[in-house]
Amino acid sequence: MTDGKPATRAIFTAITSGKGGVGKTFVAANLAAALARQGQRVLVLDADLGLANLDVVLNLVPKLTLHDVFDGRSALEDAIVPAPGGFSALLAGSGMVEYSRLTPEVRQKLLDVVERVGTRFDHVLLDTGAGISDVVLFTISLADQVIVVATPEPTSMTDAYATIKVLAATQARRAIRLVVNQVRRPGEGRVVHQQLQQVVDRYVNPTLDAALRLELLGELPADPAVREAVARRELLLETQPGTPFSMAVVTLATRLLQG
């Protein structure tokens, strides 16, 4: 590069959950804001092509979306919009149903977008859809690291476990980070983490060449302020940085930056 800075490539982090409704997108958006506060250039890409809702969480009505980029109606740069938390967002917008199946076209287009945004940011968060569909697994496969968001609910833990199992078996993932959302008391995240690791050790690791390690990136408290922020379509980190949830997200961001 001419300015003497080394060419950098963003760290791509897929944020996934298995089960829907665990606050994945809200966590992703607030985490992006926390990273931005620490001086990082952050992009959140709404990879939930079927049922995109990052725009809802961020209260944005974008003129141009990933949909337009895929269809060739917009340049990639024009569809990257500033979000309230000081980061950038690439929204999926509605009408992406035609792209919710993993056709060769979708593969090529996603790969192309990911390759191109990499040089302009320090961190790219890929907010995947719920479930373990082909599109979700393909999106995750584009990422350097994976964060699985789970809550202490049995259904969420089961789906998180299924996701972890599939990623270990089909993508050779040997390290996956865990964020436990909506914990009702401190330390509950650690319990969820231990339970998941224990079952992985018993049923998954014997089938792998090297053991899969789950790393607890952090826990986020069930905080009444979250519900209000979601309803008002605000980032909690922006409106109430002092609330327990916001402070926990800042801790998450710090850990993420520590590598």
Binding site: P152, T158, R184, V191
Partner: peptide, 20 residues
Amino acid sequence: PVVSGEEKRMLFDSSQFLDF
């Protein structure tokens, strides 16, 4: 991606959860 009944049992079979 199947999670067997056995795996599910182990996932929740913990006295630690009784605290909640």
